[in-house]
Amino acid sequence: MSSYHRPPSVAEALRLKRELPGSSFIAGGTDLLVQMKDRVRQPTALISIRHLSELTRIETDGGARLGAATPLSDLADDSALMTGWPILGEALRDFASVQIRGSATIGGNLCNGSPAADAAPALIVLGARVRIAGLDGERLLPVEQLFEAPGRTRVREEELLVSIELDPPLPSGHGVFLKKMRTAMDVSLASIASLALLRDGRLEEIRLAAGSVAPVPMRLHETEKVLRDRPLTPERIAEARRVARDEVRPITDIRAGADYRRHIVGVFVQRALEATLEKGDR
């Protein structure tokens, strides 16, 4: 049994959070309320933040700033955001259902700390940062460093993730790809996001991230190493596919076996790199 509070500002929300031990912030509630029904979490009080206009704005002015309590469908409907960072549209496509996308928020999806958070690999390769507010001020953290363990992030008990910040869209020539294996309503079995810049046949820049194949969404540093500053050839792609398979740390669960997930990661990495080759030099 939880009481309900609707603070008028982020500052007030943070004060309430300190005043009410055992309380929880609630935005879309699509994960938290299920966890409460399952008695996984039983907050003494719910502090609603979804009405705070400072948390539900999408600002695109050069870079982008996404209010943490913005519903996923509002992001998908924002044409400036989808034009500048189309990989986000790919990440949100087929996410759960229309009903869930209309309530679930981008900040909530990250704070829930799911290894399968669909937006995470895309945000990681884009180099996105989260802004975290506390009573003593704000700090910025790369999305890549946000996740600690399944269900746990580096947002501390008395802090609130307030926005996600993106650098300006990449100059032309960069190839950005996202592949995921999921159907609506289910959880992704594996997903890969990649960002690449091919110049004179060499991969000048390469960032790869994977979801659903480790305790947290992860950057594929080892795979990047075999690719960076080298010519992108079919042999190199085959090697990257092998390294990616070995680099991820998937589990076997009811949705898929670990071996199968490794296989899929390899295939997705190969496809992302082949797409980069096909797109060609800048």
């Binding site: 309320l33 299920v34 609603s48 979804r50 209309g102 309530s103």
Partner: peptide, 13 residues
Amino acid sequence: GRMVNACLTLAAE
């Protein structure tokens, strides 16, 4: 006008 699951919506909202 927006579809929501009433089972995951707080009445207060």
